[in-house]
Nucleic acid binder design. Sequence first.
DNA 1: GTTGAGCGTT
Length: 322
Amino acid sequence: MGEMYIRVAEDENEEPMEIPSEDDGTVLLSSVAAQFPGACGLRYRSPVSQCMRGVRLVEGVLHAPESNWGNLVYVVNYPKDNKRKMEEMDAASAVKIKRGIQKTSDLIVLGLPWKTSEQDLKDYFGTFGEVIMVQVKRDPKSGNSKGFGFVRFADYETQVKVMSQRHMIDGRWCDCKLPNSKQGPDEPLRSRKVFVGRCTEDMTAEDLREFFMQYGEVTDVFIPKPFRAFAFVTFADDQVAQSLCGEDLIIKGVSVHISNAEPKHGNSRQMMERGRFGGVCFLCNSLQYFVFKTYIFAFCFEEEILNVVERFTQSGQHYCIE
DNA sequence: GTTGAGCGTT
């Protein structure tokens, strides 16, 4: 038969590449793999049945169908769950993220007027997007509203939008948040909050909010007092928060460093057991945590320390200095 | 029958 070339592509619609055959008309899998690393075989679309057919492979040698390769385009087979497949998966999920196609979750609606009904909720939230669930929590006996409820949207974009603002419902301001049951260690790498290090004292919460708005909806800015050269910024969308981690950004002419705000397993008990941060506070004589000098943790990005700092500053409790 | 920070009878 003599040496010839067969046309091979990664996809039926892509431009094929010519792969040399052997003198006996067969094609070595190694020849295919030389151009398509990781290839484990070939397939083609039968002109008769219009189905994909596999090419016979015996000990690394590909045999022509009908003893003739013809002018068909052969498509490369890759092993299941190999690198290429993984890349396709990544690409697919990346598209999902970019398009905002993400699983939604129930949002708790806090501050509802006693009179607000589920129909009221549906009518109100329906103006943001498709509502697929509403609930008003009531006392089973009396049927009286407990003043809070839940809502679930069809689209993640809608959820983000709704979480990013307050809501005037039947004359009261209400907040929509992720319920506690949906937070926590459910998805540890999905933090919506970032740590902003190297802050200067002239950076106000409003400065930070305005700056970070360019990346996405900002739902909270927290600056510890007294000044400690860091802040926490929370976004409505965890993807935004994650995308900023590791960045050095310029705010008011100074470079701040963004890193993750929440430890994967930042358990205060674990820290105490390690004996690194445990002890008795000389101020209150009963607290069990130490926080070191400002300049130490201000420039230290160890998640555990930051978590402790945040717990203290947010709870309004005093803290210990050495 | 009241109230106003919170966290969901299944």
